[in-house]
Design a protein around this nucleic acid. Sequence first.
RNA 1: GGCACGGUAGCCAAGUGGCAAGGCGAGAGUCUGCAAAACUCUUAUACGCCGGUUCGAUUCCGGCCCGUGCCU
Length: 309
Amino acid sequence: MKETPKNPILFIVGPTGAGKSKLAIRVARRLRGEIISMDSMQIYRGMDIGTDKPSRWARWRVPHHLFDLVRPDQEFSVYEYRNRFFEAAEKILGKGKTVVAVGGTGLYVKAVVDGLSPHPGKDEGIRNRLEKIAAEEGLNLLYARLQKADPGVAKRLHPNDKKRIIRALEVLELTGKSLAEWERKTIPLEAMGYGYRLFGIRTGRLALYKAIDRRVDCMFRKGMVKEAFRLRDKLSATAAQAIGYRELWGYFEGKANLVEVREKIKQHTRNFAKKQLIWFKRDSRIVWLSGTEKEMTDRIVRMAGLPGK
RNA sequence: GGCACGGUAGCCAAGUGGCAAGGCGAGAGUCUGCAAAACUCUUAUACGCCGGUUCGAUUCCGGCCCGUGCCU
């Protein structure tokens, strides 16, 4: 028996400050869509101004999903994200509507589109033990161990890449199988029966950097400092490293002045945008859009292969 | 005006009588359960100026210029 084909999932990716959210709303309004966020920091409740979450008004106009999933002191993972994504997507598609997935967290996009292999999650005990070995006896030891036990994975990792070396050893210890072996079981989106389209917003780097500067100034006007102050000491390690917040800790301790902090935030946001650009650049499936918001919307709607509203 | 300290790459900064650390930034990349993270590569003929000592000075000496602090 044949399933009725689902609407293709539309992904809109790009660097921070490129205007993804606004474009997504426009697209969603045209296609009877709902928005799913693909952002690793907007999942935290209360971190609103600093992560530039869509306004109430925007959320009222179009339903938004996968914002405010956890408290900022809670842990989260790509795995969990991926599950939540499909939960939300199914709900939307079930209504005959269109999923407009927007975001700049490359890893999350990848986990959804290319799949995530079914290997087990982290094991705090193993991780701590390996961390300790790395600290006391040197990372080389761990790398050497990995080279012996799993030469294939060792080869693709740099000897200084502590996080991934430990992760590879962890999976090995937990399952007796190589990470690479697990990865062969990954199921990409199309194999799951979903159609999809990837769109990226192309902007000149200078224009993007300017937009970022403006946005950071705007965040300060909206009360970024107050928001961060309220959240200080209440954030998990991951949430506390969010740009805009992590720079302010120094200010609260009297170690930096606000002007410096603001410039640092701008700079770090630019660095981040650059990394996002690099991440998405290599994905040849992405259709790159430029022009006005309306032109980009038209193009997406046309390529989505669906009638407009 | 006097005294003290300082002047090293776009910025910060260590250091030595004989190849001048590092960090930030910038550029290019990697990425499978912390990802706004982590990691990699590339990047600068940089020692304030003028003399002196020396085989050799960024380093020691003298003068000058500039900055900072203190004193009058």
